[in-house]
Design a protein around this nucleic acid. Structure first.
Lengths: 362, 362
DNA sequence: TTGTAGGCGTTATCAA
DNA sequence: TTGATAACGCCTACAA
């Protein structure tokens, strides 16, 4: 039997007068004693303002202040399951494109009193799943930026707690996708005006929905302009991945190349330059995102800028708006991309073959 | 009175036969029923292997497997206070220098079964304190990378839970600092050999201990070589901060400039180039860290490379090693820096003044 | 508006 | 080795 049956809710509890250990952090019981009210009143005053009289609320706040009280998030989470924490998983923490996504999400989170928990999948579906599982245990909601997971896996995840994906579309899951049409349309029009008649695209990983999406958009616009569009083999979405695409690009007839992202575009450009090609004279190169550093290559990179900050912020906002409207927002025109023309694009080279030395394969 | 007094520990609990809600996650009580043992035995089997007979452990594991059991981290944290989570606060998430610090910490964390929680202070001591407080409530330990907090504040933080600082030295707090001497020694020697007789240093924020440390090291080496060394006004440790230092640098007589970090070095270089100066002919520029992008400026940046990954990993390791040896490891020779010579450094210009147009002040 | 009392899922302390 | 039971700190019907 329990002694609670004899002395009520406070029996067996440690009181302000008899702390169990000298420096245990104060609890609502300590506050209750100091303010001369019941612990449950303290709880109410602290978590649902308005459900308690102004006077007692005042007393309680002062007592809490005096004791330097901090809620125990575990104790709070145990009955409620809520932690005021949102998880964000990015595919690659070393991709500067995520800077602003993270900042956007973090800013929006703080604004709502939430904390952001960050993890990366390092481009691995397995690691992503592990991180997602771990986070879901702790977090009120999850944002997946450019996930490498399958649709089914994401769907399963989202059945547990609210999930929002960025740069991905999954049936039944809220999704934040930039409207790439604006940027691609401008870019292809520009290329057409510069005389380019054959364009190629270097995609990222196969698991990247956004890579596929970008190709479709480019293809469609090229068709419209009567430009030949071809797709190269997929690569890792990194500087090295871009480098590896160099040989194939050189072997083709395209006079302009879109890369899945700026990282790849930079890698491709540098590898080509190392082999003696002139950019943009021999080849025009375009990236996506407009990341840190894309403006200090030589030539500076032309790119299609993504609304990275807004993507992160909107994802978080719509997560907090708690799946009211699910699975919408695809190619949201409120998240437009924009062509940023710099030095890596120019007039199409004339009929002759590219100059340059032979290229190491790899 | 409670009904527990009549029916023992399981009374009033929801059982496998009578789940409270249709799909509530399984608990150790469910496992206990399925395995025919007491819940406390399940707890032991799950959290302290070896304290239970192999046979029952086996049964329990199978039951857990079958129910797809996941521990409730809050429930576990309530009595223990431990969460298997480590916090990492960086001063600026958009500084690529933290890429590898984060990766290093994250890798080491996963290797030990810990999860990393990341936050940034955006170069603000207030935000840093807020983030630190929030994290300390949840986390088993905290890593502060280039903190902007005062020594006292950090000391106070570390009295709560284990804290490790990176690029900072605080009495009584474990600290991971790269050994900058190696890199600086080589750099100054190189500059001396190239005929530089006056060097200046563009520091970062005053709150940055590392910035001060770098200056001391540079000054000491310059003294040794009989080179004049001056320090400019402090700036934000960003590309813009570097730009803002351009006017002062030009006004001085130094023929070579160290910047607190690569971000600033890149900003300074670009601002100077925009004004018509030639790098390195008119001025040699050096950064610290060797960040992403420092090799694709024109000229590529010479810099003193920091062991970023090792810093993050060691910080985490020594955090888990739980303050066994506190406040050591300053300028740990196991974490050496290294001079990376690229194109932004060269022969000192001769007596004549720098060329170039007038420079906007700011 | 405030108090009472039971429960959230786990660990830890005793006994058995 | 295993079982019983009291915390852990907070929330929340329900009652007053």
């Amino acid at each position: 039997m329990t002694d609670t049956s004899k002395a009520g809710g406070e029996a067996g509890r440690r009181t302000a007068a008899h702390p169990r250990t000298p420096k245990a952090p104060p609890t609502i019981y300590d506050i209750a004693v100091l303010a001369g009210v019941n612990p449950s009143t303290v709880s109410r005053a602290l978590s649902k303002p308005g459900r308690v009289s102004a006077k007692t609320a005042q007393k309680i706040m002062e007592a809490a202040e005096e004791l330097n009280y901090q809620v125990n998030v575990f104790a709070r989470a145990l009955p409620t399951g809520r932690t005021q924490t949102i998880g964000l998983i990015v595919s690659d923490i070393t991709n500067p494109a995520y800077f602003e996504v993270i900042r956007g999400a973090e800013t929006a989170a703080s604004a709502h009193g939430y904390t952001l928990m960050l993890a990366e999948s390092a481009e691995s579906a397995d690691l992503e799943m592990t991180a997602a599982r771990r986070m879901l245990a702790t977090v009120d909601g999850l944002i997946l930026a450019s996930p490498r997971l399958s649709d089914e896996e994401i769907g399963r995840l989202s059945s547990t707690k609210p999930v929002v994906v960025i740069n991905r579309s999954v049936a039944g899951v809220t999704s934040m996708v930039a409207d790439i049409e604006a940027g691609v349309t401008d870019a292809v029009r520009h290329l057409a005006a510069m005389g380019h008649a054959a364009i190629s695209y270097v995609p990222g990983p196969e698991r990247s929905w956004m890579s596929q999406r970008r190709w479709e958009s480019i293809k469609a616009r090229c068709d419209w302009h009567g430009i030949e569009a071809t797709m190269e083999a997929g690569q890792q979405p990194t500087v090295d991945g871009g480098r590896r695409a160099a040989a194939a690009v050189r072997a083709g007839r395209a006079t302009a190349v879109f890369c899945y992202n700026d990282l790849m575009a930079i890698g491709l450009m540098r590898e080509l330059q190392a082999a003696g090609l002139a950019i943009p004279e021999d080849l025009s190169i375009l990236g996506f995102d407009n990341i840190f550093g894309s403006d200090f290559t030589t030539p500076p990179l032309s790119t299609i800028k993504s609304p990275l900050h807004a993507l992160g912020a909107s994802a978080l906002e719509s997560l907090l708006a708690a799946g009211d409207r699910a699975a919408q927002l695809q190619d949201d025109p409120a998240l437009p991309t924009e062509l940023v023309l710099r030095g890596s694009t120019g007039q199409a080279r004339e009929g002759q073959k590219m100059s340059g030395n032979s290229l190491a394969t790899g």
